[in-house]
Amino acid sequence: MPLFTLNINNKEHRIDVAKGTSLLWVLREHLGLTGTKYSCGIAQCGACTVHIDNAPMKACVLPIDSFADGQRITTIEGLSEKGDHPVQKAWIEAQAPQCGYCQSGQIMQAVALLEENPNPTREEIKEYMNGILCRCGTYLRIVKAIELAAENKTPIT
């Protein structure tokens, strides 16, 4: 099997897998980075959202052989060392998760949103987050968490 090299959370990983294997299976089953979740496999739900060079992408439809040298992959595990990224803190403040399964994808999408647009309107939040499904129905608290984390809102204590 071919050997691939990926930069994940600022660390080089050499991975021996079949060509065409999705980044999601590489992360979860080969590297043990299980914070990124499988749910649909066809880029419809966003549970597997990671950052590729800071842009949110759905790992389930990215074959490992599609990465160029030097591309940086960030997963929920690489977002902060102690789970204290401002967005993660806002998520706790809003008590956003219920079952929690979709929340890594939600948080990765929200971080990308706020990096792109530090003061999103509610409509902009809804539009940007629309690709990430939550079955428990935590959407209102996700919006609240993003508003808490946004620069124009009360700082999180």
């Binding site: 979860r28 089953e29 043990g32 299980t34 914070g35 990124t36 979740k37 499988y38 997963t75 929920i76 595990e77 977002l79 902060s80 102690k82 789970g83 993660q88 998520w91 706790i92 008590q95 956003a96 998760p97 929690g100 399964y101 929340q103 890594s104 948080i107």
Partner: peptide, 17 residues
Amino acid sequence: EIPVKVNGTAQFAIDIR
């Protein structure tokens, strides 16, 4: 259990290896 659900370490059965 919310802190482990926002840092990706909450363990679901599908995460077992």
